[in-house]
Design a protein around this nucleic acid. Structure first.
Lengths: 211, 211
DNA sequence: GTCTATAGAAAGATAGAC
DNA sequence: GTCTATCTTTCTATAGAC
């Protein structure tokens, strides 16, 4: 293959470096992926990488930061409906859809936190916290309105996010469930998990079992 | 290959090596921790490690396998009560307690799967699957008895485990919540998430809000 | 069982040519 | 911007002394 000429779009290589790093970091882990391997994936020599990224740590940070900023922007652009219940459903479906569309970025953002420098870690945590706060605000409104009953606002927030993010650990393209069904299934569980209701597991079920 | 043990407590060093590896792998990640660093933590030279563990990969595998076998043994030894509801509560509290007592092993078992060789990965997944099946069986019984209503058995299993395991991402010793409260809080959410009940968020709450 | 020493490979990052 | 070449460090794992 003959090398044609210098690219007209100087950002294209940088973009491909990030794409390769995203895929490799997600698959093998940040610490297990060398700059040489990223370079090979892109089709350049290792030295060329440093014309596009500051260093390996900076590359990881940029991937995580860009991802989290995309999450926040996408959520803010999502139609959310009127009440807390509608907004909670919107959040549930948004979170699942967004995560399933970007499994690699999601995986890195959750798994590689410990490989960030303290400064980078603080910046990433700030972004993540903003996202968690969006859900927590919905739950708070719902509780205030008497619609929801959660034992602890912060824990309910983290529990729901953990549950929803867990989709990425098992979902495979072309699996048993069509993607459109997954939002329905999880929304059913989220909806009930924050529902008001005092009897275990629910008044009607308890009567049916013991009465 | 032969190991001649002359020490009075020949297994003590091996035990300390595993303990150090557990702590370091959990904190920095398998790929980021060198055998030299483990040795330094234990207080020996790096060559001495290989009298106790086969190699780095084998060390990781042993840590994960021992942990998962402990989980299974501990769950089987746990009193579970009579009905599905009681067993689900037992599972919920057991999972949280066990995870909070072994944060490092739990973290490794969930985060380092991709650093296992294919054979080791298969063995670990088999153990994890056995644990998931224990919960799924409880949910299946509850559905059969008309006590629970889950949209999908497998997904409910994974959703609950993801939610419960998420505790380890935020729990800190001496934090806002006493450890005894956490089981209560999550049990409330799990209980409701699998509860029968068709109205969003729950019939009683819906009436209270709109009626 | 632990030590010292080292083999042999690979890592992150940079310099200078073009 | 990308190349080749290299500096410097670090890695896993093993050998042989004691």
């Amino acid at each position: 293959m003959r090398r044609v000429r210098t690219s007209r779009r100087p950002r294209e290589t940088g973009r491909r470096i990030r794409a390769a790093a995203l895929r490799l970091f997600a698959r093998h882990g940040y610490a297990a992926v060398s700059m040489r391997r990223i370079a090979r994936e892109v089709g350049v020599q290792v030295g060329a990488l440093y014309a596009h990224v500051p260093d390996k740590q900076g590359l990881l940070f940029e991937l995580m930061r860009d991802h989290l900023e995309e999450v926040l922007a996408a959520w803010e652009a999502t139609p959310k409906g009127d009440g807390p219940l509608e907004r909670l459903e919107a959040f549930t479906r948004f979170h699942i859809d967004f995560h399933l569309a970007r499994p690699e970025a999601v995986f890195i953002a959750y798994m590689e936190l410990r490989n960030l420098t303290p400064e980078n870690f603080a910046a990433i945590e700030k972004l993540r916290r903003r996202y968690e706060d969006a859900l927590q605000a919905i739950l708070a409104e719902g509780v205030q309105a008497g619609l929801f009953d959660v034992p602890d606002l912060k824990l309910a927030t983290l529990a729901i996010i953990a549950m929803l993010t867990g989709v990425n650990t098992w979902y495979r393209e072309g699996g048993r469930l069509p993607r459109s069904r997954i939002g329905d299934i999880y929304w059913d569980m989220v909806r009930k998990a924050v529902a008001r209701g005092d009897g275990p597991p629910a008044p009607s079920a308890l009567r049916g079992y013991r009465g």
